[in-house]
Lab assay of single mutants.
Amino acid sequence: NSLAEAKVLANRELDKYGVSDYYKNLINNAKTVEGVKALIDEILA
């Protein structure tokens, strides 16, 4: 998966839960796919 794909999928996942734009910005600023995954795990914990 590319970083861009990971960000799109992460933001879709956040949308399902009604997560605020603050967290979407964190996702969009992530530098690695692993970073995106770690943020998602933390946000949805």
Rank of each mutant, 00 (worst) to 15 (best):
I40L: 15
E5N: 09
D15C: 01
Y22M: 09
A30K: 04
K31L: 14
N25E: 14
Y23E: 03
K7E: 01
L26H: 04
V33W: 06
K7F: 02
A38K: 12
A45G: 13
A4Y: 10
D21L: 10
D15I: 08
L14C: 04
G18F: 10
L9R: 14
Y17I: 14
I40C: 03
K31F: 09
A10D: 01
N28I: 07
K7W: 02
K16R: 11
Y23M: 06
G18W: 05
A30L: 06
K24W: 05
A45D: 09
L26N: 03
K37G: 04
E34M: 10
L9Y: 08
A30Q: 12
D21F: 07
E13H: 09
G18T: 05
A10K: 00
Y17V: 12
K24M: 06
A6H: 09
Y17E: 04
V8C: 04
A6G: 02
G35W: 06
R12E: 14
G35Y: 10
S2I: 12
I43D: 00
A45P: 05
K24T: 06
K24G: 03
D15K: 10
K37C: 04
A30W: 01
L3Q: 01
S20M: 10
G18M: 09
D15M: 11
Y17A: 11
E5G: 04
K7D: 01
D21P: 11
L9E: 12
N28H: 08
A10R: 00
A4P: 04
V8F: 14
N25R: 08
A30S: 07
G35K: 14
E5Y: 11
K7G: 01
A10N: 00
Y17N: 06
E34L: 06
S20L: 08
N28Y: 10
A4R: 11
E42C: 11
N25A: 14
A10M: 02
E13P: 00
S20N: 10
K24P: 02
K31G: 09
L39I: 13
E42L: 10
D41H: 10
D41A: 15
R12Y: 11
V19D: 05
I40D: 00
L9K: 14
L44R: 13
K24Y: 09
I40F: 15
E5T: 09
I27T: 01
L14G: 03
N25K: 11
A6D: 03
A30R: 03
A45E: 08
Y23H: 07
A10P: 00
S2H: 09
N25F: 09
E13R: 06
Y23W: 14
D15H: 07
L14W: 02
A10I: 03
E42K: 11
E5P: 02
Y23D: 03
E13Y: 14
L3N: 00
V33Q: 04
I27L: 06
V8I: 15
R12L: 15
E34A: 12
L14N: 02
S2R: 10
N1K: 05
L44E: 03
L44D: 02
V19P: 08
I40M: 15
A30H: 02
L3E: 01
R12T: 11
G18Y: 07
K16H: 07
A6L: 14
A45F: 13
S2Y: 08
A38F: 11
A30P: 00
V8E: 15
A6M: 13
V33N: 03
L3S: 00
L14P: 00
E34Q: 09
D15S: 11
D41Q: 13
E34V: 04
N11K: 12
V33G: 02
S2W: 08
E42N: 13
K16G: 06
E13T: 14
K31E: 13
S20D: 11
T32W: 01
D21E: 14
I27D: 00
L39N: 01
L39D: 00
Y22Q: 08
N28K: 09
E42I: 14
K7S: 01
K24V: 06
A45S: 10
K16V: 05
I27A: 01
L3W: 01
A4I: 09
K16S: 05
N11V: 13
E5S: 04
T32L: 02
D21A: 14
D21N: 10
A45R: 11
G35V: 13
I43N: 00
T32D: 09
E5R: 05
K31I: 11
L9T: 11
R12Q: 15
D15W: 04
A10T: 02
V8Y: 14
N28M: 11
A45N: 12
A4V: 09
D21C: 02
E42T: 12
V8K: 15
L3D: 01
K24L: 05
K37Q: 09
D41E: 13
G18D: 10
A38W: 12
L26D: 03
Y17Q: 07
N11A: 10
N11G: 07
V19Q: 06
N28D: 11
Y22V: 11
L3G: 00
N11W: 15
N29Q: 14
V33L: 11
N25V: 07
K16D: 04
A4Q: 13
N25G: 08
L3F: 01
V33P: 06
A4E: 12
K7Q: 08
E34W: 06
A4F: 09
T32F: 02
S20F: 06
Y22I: 06
V8A: 14
T32H: 03
I40V: 15
N29V: 08
Y22H: 12
V36H: 00
S20E: 07
G18K: 09
A10H: 01
E5M: 12
N28C: 05
D41Y: 12
D15L: 09
N11S: 10
E42G: 08
S20H: 09
V8R: 15
D21Y: 08
L26P: 01
L44V: 11
L26I: 10
E42P: 03
L9C: 06
L44I: 08
A10C: 04
I40P: 00
D41W: 10
A38P: 01
N1A: 14
Y23N: 03
K7V: 04
V33Y: 06
I43Y: 10
E34R: 05
E5I: 13
A10F: 02
N29S: 13
V8H: 13
N11P: 00
Y22S: 04
Y23A: 04
I27E: 00
I27N: 00
Y23S: 02
N11H: 15
K24N: 03
I40E: 03
G35Q: 13
L9N: 15
S20T: 11
L9D: 12
A38R: 12
E34C: 05
E5F: 08
A38D: 11
